[in-house]
Computed example of a mutant assay.
Amino acid sequence: ERGYIHRPTAAAAVRCLSIAVDENNVLPGALQLIRELRPRWETERVKTKLFTDGITNKLMACYTQEDMMDAVLVRVYGRKTELFVDRENELKNFLVLRAHDCAPKLYCTFQNGLCYEFIPGMALGPEHVRDCVYVIGYRLVAQEMAKMHAIHANGSLLKPNLWHRLRKYFYIVKTELIVKASNSSLHQEVPSLEVLEEELAWMKEFLSQLGSPIVLCHNDLLCKNIIYRETEGDVRFIDYEYAGYNYQAFDIGNHFNEFAGVSEVDYNLYPCRETQLQWLRHYLQAYKQLSQKDQGGRGVVVSDEELDMLYVQVNQFALASHFLWACWALIQARYSTIDFNFLSYAGIRFKQYFQRKPVVTALEMLK
């Protein structure tokens, strides 16, 4: 059920450098990579910027121009992230998305990371994606997601990666963390294994029958992974390590969950029904137009029934997003060297899952 992405046949081979970068001291390894990738750059002229927003990997930009237009990004995989990221598939994701103009140039892989093109622009915050006055939050993000989802639309044999990921994360939590945990705060934040196992079985049975299409998803569309390019008047998505075939409604529901933020989570900021319906209408218009190219894309109509069905699916699949990232955060709490309270974050996501479950399961689609 992995739903592996197929590497595009026209994609060029990606350069692979046998260099390892120390995630606790990125600079020396980054400069070593730059000497290989940009041999004409004088090392003493190379400027660097360490980005601190990410909570999975370490990221550094290396550049010589003040406007960073020539920047090369060096992304170093976080400790033990191979437990929940399939790096081979990530590379295929990158190449497929690049082939469809949904990703930057990929310069090379190295032993524990990637180097790729910097996309200049503004990384969005929760206030941008939820402000209805801000065209960014609605039309542009919805359209870019529709563009990605339409890449392999109508693929009847595609399998979602959601259940494989959930089972994998839960197995690690079950075997590596909770059973061996002496940490009392862990048991306070996390429901019992029996409860979690029951919820996992219930989710697969309930969500699988909702009829959400399987499409190529980003699967991690938090606000900082959306770059607004004012001069081009568009947005681009970054960071594809969790990308893969999945339920359309999961990707959107996961994005709506991210309206609440990451560092200071506030689910009062989760979009209301009216906000969601505006967003979803933009999305469906773009998705139908892009995935019905054989009909010329003319005369696309989004019915109230379609809109309502997607609204219900999205809010129900948002439950799986809470559960997935709660398990992910427990694994990160055990292994990550990044300064973030993963255990508290896991507790917040599990709490929201159980609060939202009775609300969203009561939703009914228009007849």
Rank of each mutant, 00 (worst) to 15 (best):
I34R: 05
I19S: 05
A11Q: 14
N25H: 04
V14P: 00
S18Y: 09
P39Q: 10
G29S: 04
T56E: 11
S18M: 08
P8C: 02
P8R: 06
K49M: 10
V21M: 09
T43L: 15
A20V: 05
G54W: 05
R35K: 14
T43G: 02
I34H: 09
T9K: 15
T43P: 00
G54S: 04
D22E: 05
T48C: 05
D22A: 02
V14Y: 01
E44Q: 09
I19E: 04
I55G: 07
L37W: 01
T43F: 03
Q32E: 10
Q32Y: 04
T9N: 07
E42L: 14
L31F: 01
E42Q: 14
L37I: 10
R15F: 06
K47T: 12
W41A: 07
L50V: 14
L31V: 01
D22K: 03
L17G: 09
L27C: 02
N25T: 06
C16F: 06
G29R: 09
N24Y: 14
E42P: 00
G54T: 08
S18T: 12
G29M: 03
L27Y: 10
L37G: 06
P28M: 00
P8I: 03
L31Q: 03
G54P: 04
E23N: 13
L27A: 01
T56N: 08
K47S: 14
R35V: 10
W41L: 03
E44L: 07
P39L: 13
A10T: 15
A20Q: 12
Q32A: 14
L37K: 09
R38K: 14
A12R: 14
I19K: 06
E42A: 15
W41V: 02
R35N: 13
L37S: 03
V21W: 04
K49Q: 13
P8S: 02
A13D: 12
R45V: 08
A10G: 05
R40G: 15
T56R: 09
A30R: 01
R40V: 09
V46T: 06
E23I: 10
